[in-house]
Amino acid sequence: MREAIKLARGQLADALGVRPSMVGDWEAGADPSGEVRERYACLLTAALATMPFLDSAAVGNAAVAERIQDGNRLLRP
């Protein structure tokens, strides 16, 4: 997902206030938690809102598609 929205690992880490290695851990399958998870969900949702063509098929990764859905669920009341 990060690459699909043209963000370097360091850029995403800076935006979320974490180390780039933490972003790497997430990409390897670890789950973000707490406040960072909420910020990450907001960032992904905002990215998707500007790129409506980007869906699970375009991403081509079921794990990423699941994280997108998780992020959307976090933002719904």
Rank of each mutant, 00 (worst) to 15 (best):
L43S: 01
R39Y: 02
M22I: 12
D55F: 04
A13N: 04
K6P: 03
A30C: 06
Q69S: 14
G10V: 15
A49G: 07
A4S: 13
K6N: 11
A58I: 15
G29C: 08
M22C: 09
G71P: 03
F53E: 15
L75H: 05
F53M: 11
V59D: 00
A8H: 10
L74Q: 03
M22Y: 10
A63Q: 12
L12H: 01
Q11Y: 04
R37H: 09
A13P: 06
S33N: 08
A8D: 09
I68K: 05
R19P: 02
F53K: 13
Q11H: 05
A49T: 06
A8K: 14
E66A: 13
L75W: 03
A30H: 10
L16I: 05
N72G: 12
R67W: 14
L16R: 03
W26K: 00
P20N: 01
V59N: 02
T45H: 13
C42K: 13
G24T: 04
L44Y: 05
G10H: 15
Q69L: 14
R19N: 12
R2N: 06
E27M: 01
L74W: 07
P77D: 06
A28M: 10
L12M: 13
D31G: 09
G34H: 06
L75G: 05
R73F: 10
S21Y: 07
E27L: 03
G34P: 03
A30P: 02
A15K: 14
P20A: 01
A41R: 01
N61R: 15
L44A: 04
Q69G: 14
V59K: 05
A4Y: 05
R76E: 10
R76K: 13
R2Q: 07
M22Q: 13
R2W: 02
I68Y: 08
R2H: 06
A15M: 12
L43D: 02
I5W: 07
P20W: 11
V64R: 11
G17Q: 04
A49D: 09
L48F: 09
A47T: 13
R37D: 07
T50C: 13
W26A: 01
E66S: 12
P32F: 03
A28V: 08
R9C: 00
D14W: 09
D31A: 13
L75F: 01
V64G: 04
P52C: 02
M51A: 15
V36W: 00
L16Y: 01
Y40P: 03
G71W: 08
D70H: 12
A57G: 12
L44N: 04
I68N: 03
G60L: 06
A15R: 10
R73T: 10
I68G: 01
M1W: 06
V36P: 01
V59G: 00
M22N: 09
E27G: 00
R67T: 07
E66Y: 11
D31T: 12
A57R: 11
D25E: 11
R9L: 05
G34A: 03
D70W: 14
C42D: 14
A15I: 07
A4V: 14
L54P: 05
A4I: 15
T50M: 11
V36E: 00
Q11D: 08
M51L: 14
G10I: 13
S21R: 14
I5Y: 08
A65V: 03
A62R: 14
G34D: 00
L74R: 08
R2D: 06
S21Q: 14
A47C: 13
G10C: 08
A46E: 09
T50K: 14
P52T: 03
Q11W: 06
D25V: 09
